[in-house]
Nucleic acid binder design. Structure first.
Lengths: 153, 153
DNA sequence: GTGCGTGCAAAGACTTTGCACGTAC
DNA sequence: GTACGTGCAAAGTCTTTGCACGCAC
């Protein structure tokens, strides 16, 4: 039950709160535990601080000498999504990508078509544009995502 | 070899040319044939005239009493992408979605989060914004895609 | 008869799930 | 000892590929 589109949930708490605390609180609410695997995965995401994939998390952990199964990684990713800490980003049909979303609202991504590198950018005026377009249709904007494909340099 | 991101190729020919002619020309260039299956698939896309998935094409054809295998549908989708007639759109991690792209440059989509309905919209000022952002990074914009998630009515 | 196209079934890639074992309260 | 978590392997999706058969020039 992967939420089909990422409706960009609004981050609700203070930005300064450590993400692990947010995660711990979310888990506690579900009567679940903040296990070493879950902590390691979250730490890795924070360290990477970029768009990431399940595979990448596993190999990064592996390099640190820490072995976690794919199953656990996927399960943890789902928990982190539910907690609003990460968000799915659709940049590639082959594999799911995610970004840290908590307190950041990363809605705009620059994809370097040469290198595949993905950079988070921020284009504030998009929110106004988006709201205007929705209002014209009698709808209410819940979020947006812009992907820009670029080459050169 | 599904092209990972859709770099939004610029449509080059006159809009009034029927898409089947474009497709036929593309196939001829590859020494391939405009078969009934390929024609039917393209006709269906034109009739649907909306974001679509492979599955949907097959069942729509099936309702018309025409049976085409998934393999042929996927192979034809790839040909249509190469011809610049359709483009992949990433709206959902579960399945690949495509839209007719020829002569339309549909870069902006409005996703109704309540109904799942996807509408193509056009926001001309985005091109300027996109080009500006890329220029700031010393890159050259090749295309973009905006997804807006909305609810209400 | 060579080349291209189709359907079928098998293979692939990513993700999810069932199960047995472990660990913490 | 109950509840939750993990790894493994199997299952599940969507998509691609290999192969044999068919059709057209």
């Amino acid at each position: 039950m992967t939420s089909p589109p990422p409706p960009t949930p609004a981050p609700a708490f203070h930005i300064t709160e450590p993400l692990c605390a947010v995660f711990r609180r979310h888990l506690k609410g579900l009567n679940q535990k903040y296990t070493p695997e879950r902590a390691k995965i979250l730490d890795t995401l924070i360290e990477v601080d970029d768009v990431f994939q399940a595979e990448q998390i596993q190999s990064t952990l592996h390099e640190s000498g820490y072995r976690v199964s794919k199953a656990t990684i996927y399960r943890t990713i789902k928990l982190l999504q539910d907690a609003g800490i990460i968000q799915q980003v659709l940049v590639d049909a082959e594999q799911s990508h995610y970004v840290l979303a908590y307190g950041k609202t990363p809605r705009d991504l620059l994809v370097n078509a040469d290198t595949g590198e993905i950079t988070m950018i921020n284009i504030p005026e998009l929110e106004a544009i988006r709201d205007r377009v929705c209002a014209e249709k009698g709808l209410k904007a819940q979020g947006h995502r812009l992907l820009i494909y670029a080459t050169g340099e």
